[in-house]
Amino acid sequence: MPPKQRIVRAAVAIVAAAALMSFYLLAVRLTGIMPRCLFKWATGWDCPGCGSQRALLALLHGDIIRAIESNLLIPFAVVYLALLGTGWLYPDRPSMHRLHSHITSPFALTFIAVTIIVWTIIRNLIGI
């Protein structure tokens, strides 16, 4: 990877970390006006992302149970995105490259899409 690209990617990673940090620091005070879901507002149903902000905040506080209660997918999504990000930051390492091609294979992506859709239906049926 060219050094310039490496710097850009490292910068993006730092900005993402800073965004999470500011979310952690600010969200406590802004709880009242966290953006609501347009889909839920229009239809009354939960979308796949409903509860994601509460879940993320709970995760940042280390409260995995509450995160899962708010949105079951968020802890998994965070792990997946972290893996994806690591592979993206170190594409030159063979082990990272292999990991990246495994988690972005058509099979893995289809699995993710199906999981999200099925889970969205189930959460609306049983109300989680």
Partner: peptide, 8 residues
């Protein structure tokens, strides 16, 4: 965008 922007 699916999980955080909260749009279907």
């Amino acid at each position: 965008s699916t999980l955080l922007c909260c749009t279907i």
